[in-house]
Simulated scan of single mutants.
Amino acid sequence: MPVISAPHEFNVDDLFVDLRPIFGRDLFLKCEGFNFAGSIKIKAAAEMVTIAERSGRLRPGMTLVESSSGNLGVALGIIAAHRGYRFICVTDVRCNPLTRRLMTTLGADVRVVGEPAADEGLLGARIRYVQQLCAADDNHVWLNQYVNRANWQAHYRTTAPAIAAQFPDLDVLFIGAGTTGTLMGCARYFKAYHPGVRVVAVDSVGSVNFGGPAGRRMIPGLGTSVRPAILAESFVDDVVYVEEPETVRTCRQLLGHGFLLGGSTGTVISGALSWLADRSLRAVAISPDLGERYLASVYDDVWVRETYGDVLRDGESDLCLASPAIVV
């Protein structure tokens, strides 16, 4: 039985879901949503804060500032509360309402950016706002997940070794590309210790991570409108792009089997299935979070229709979770 004194010390790192009964592929899902932050971002958050403290850059009484689409903000909110820091999270209008509520409940000061930058979208606008905050107050410390090596080092130390230990015969690993911290940490590890494993990045259509044209993206978590500085494409063997309606369909297919998982998970699995379509390989995909924070979006029929039109196939809308409960 684990006994902890800090919230970031607990994470279920050895849970994998066998997806063969659902999709008929030799595909396993590493679930990273079982910790106090509810997502894989607790690893990067803890690592970045710890390194900043050790270097003397972050000291008692200072204010943490970070740009986040949601999950990192929750993770930093938890760590800031535990260690006594004030925390300002700069997010945008795509952030799930429940995620915003979680951050404010944890004591975070949440700032929501509504207007995109002309050339770098909502992410660019968020980053500029963070820069303005830090320029106005030397007491503000921006961890900057987009350039911070500790972002990927957390996964080099923990996530990748856990996968390698469980699957010594692994052929291919699928990882979603957001800030690319998880991607880079795992890719660097496997290239160093298991170079025969192919690492495939899964990105959202409309993301500029790998040079694609910028476009509208409504599901937070994967994809960016500003290419992260920590991304090194030489460590990635292939890239798959996924349309967001396919993300919704895959999430709902998983839900039909009792697995309520996040939007990024739907994207990664959809990309993995597409890439594996004509290949017979043993594969693992990483699931960053669970699905509760997406009840008002991915799992809401009204939101899906208003956002994407009539994209749901027969039977997929039957899983709508937005209907009111019946009082008996």
Results as ranks from 00 to 15, higher is better:
169 D>R: 15
243 E>R: 13
162 A>D: 12
185 G>K: 00
185 G>Q: 01
222 L>H: 10
201 A>P: 02
272 A>H: 02
153 Q>P: 01
246 E>C: 10
205 V>Y: 07
154 A>T: 07
224 T>Q: 14
196 G>R: 09
189 Y>S: 08
259 F>L: 15
202 V>L: 00
259 F>A: 13
208 V>M: 08
249 R>M: 09
226 V>W: 00
171 D>L: 03
215 G>V: 11
262 G>D: 09
253 Q>D: 14
248 V>W: 02
274 S>P: 03
205 V>R: 14
225 S>D: 13
240 V>R: 13
163 I>R: 03
144 N>K: 09
235 F>P: 01
201 A>K: 01
172 V>T: 15
212 G>W: 09
274 S>A: 15
264 S>T: 13
228 P>Y: 09
251 C>P: 08
259 F>K: 07
234 S>E: 15
225 S>E: 14
228 P>Q: 10
267 T>C: 14
149 R>Q: 14
214 A>M: 14
152 W>T: 04
157 R>T: 09
239 V>Q: 06
225 S>V: 02
206 G>C: 06
222 L>S: 09
155 H>K: 09
196 G>F: 05
214 A>S: 14
150 A>P: 06
257 H>W: 09
252 R>M: 07
216 R>V: 15
180 T>Q: 03
196 G>K: 08
158 T>V: 14
266 G>T: 03
159 T>P: 02
253 Q>Y: 06
236 V>T: 05
156 Y>Q: 11
271 G>C: 00
166 Q>R: 15
203 D>K: 05
266 G>I: 04
175 I>V: 15
166 Q>F: 10
160 A>H: 03
211 G>Q: 07
191 K>T: 12
228 P>K: 05
223 G>C: 12
212 G>V: 07
215 G>W: 06
233 E>I: 10
157 R>Q: 12
188 R>I: 08
259 F>Q: 13
188 R>P: 08
216 R>M: 13
195 P>Y: 04
225 S>C: 03
250 T>E: 08
272 A>P: 03
183 L>W: 10
229 A>K: 13
179 T>N: 01
212 G>A: 15
211 G>Y: 09
195 P>R: 04
220 P>L: 10
197 V>Y: 00
251 C>H: 10
156 Y>S: 07
152 W>V: 02
213 P>Q: 11
203 D>T: 06
255 L>R: 04
227 R>T: 15
233 E>V: 12
179 T>E: 00
189 Y>R: 05
259 F>V: 07
159 T>A: 04
267 T>F: 06
182 T>L: 10
275 W>I: 11
176 G>F: 01
220 P>N: 11
169 D>G: 07
190 F>V: 03
251 C>F: 10
245 P>V: 12
217 R>E: 02
198 R>F: 04
210 F>E: 00
266 G>N: 04
205 V>F: 10
247 T>Y: 04
243 E>D: 15
227 R>E: 05
157 R>F: 12
217 R>F: 00
162 A>H: 11
154 A>R: 02
145 Q>P: 05
160 A>P: 04
215 G>N: 12
191 K>A: 11
178 G>F: 01
213 P>D: 13
239 V>C: 11
155 H>N: 08
275 W>Q: 10
274 S>R: 15
196 G>E: 11
208 V>G: 05
174 F>P: 08
199 V>R: 01
178 G>I: 02
224 T>A: 13
197 V>E: 01
160 A>D: 09
210 F>R: 00
249 R>Q: 11
261 L>P: 06
214 A>K: 13
185 G>T: 06
252 R>T: 07
218 M>I: 12
272 A>K: 04
155 H>G: 09
227 R>Q: 12
